[in-house]
Amino acid sequence: MTVFLTLAGIIILATVAAGLWRILRGPEDAERMMAAQLLGSGGVAVLLLSAVISGIPAIIDIALSIALLAAFASAAFVLEAFGTRGDEPADRP
């Protein structure tokens, strides 16, 4: 069973790495942020798998914090890139 879970974790890591290529190529800032969001949820999935594989429940808390940070990163991106009300970039002071 652990072999299967490890295999699934490796596959997910490989797909997340492939997804990160979007950051290099992505014309839009939003797409780069999407790839970062995918990295966040991919990390969560791999951490959950490793929590079960290694039998250490504390790793689930790490996955929880990574999910939280991924959400904050995207929120900060939208807030910064498009102004506080989401309209034009905030060049106002």
Binding site: A30, Q37, D61, L64, A67, A70, A75, A81, F82
Partner: peptide, 30 residues
């Protein structure tokens, strides 16, 4: 451990939903 697993899943769901709305609005506005 099971409850925390479900907790992580709920957080990912909520975070994913709100972030997608924000990104979609940002992309559409741009």
């Amino acid at each position: 451990m099971g409850i925390r697993l479900i907790g992580v899943w709920l957080l990912v769901q909520l975070a994913g939903a709100t972030v997608s709305q924000l990104l979609a609005r940002a992309a559409a506005r741009r």
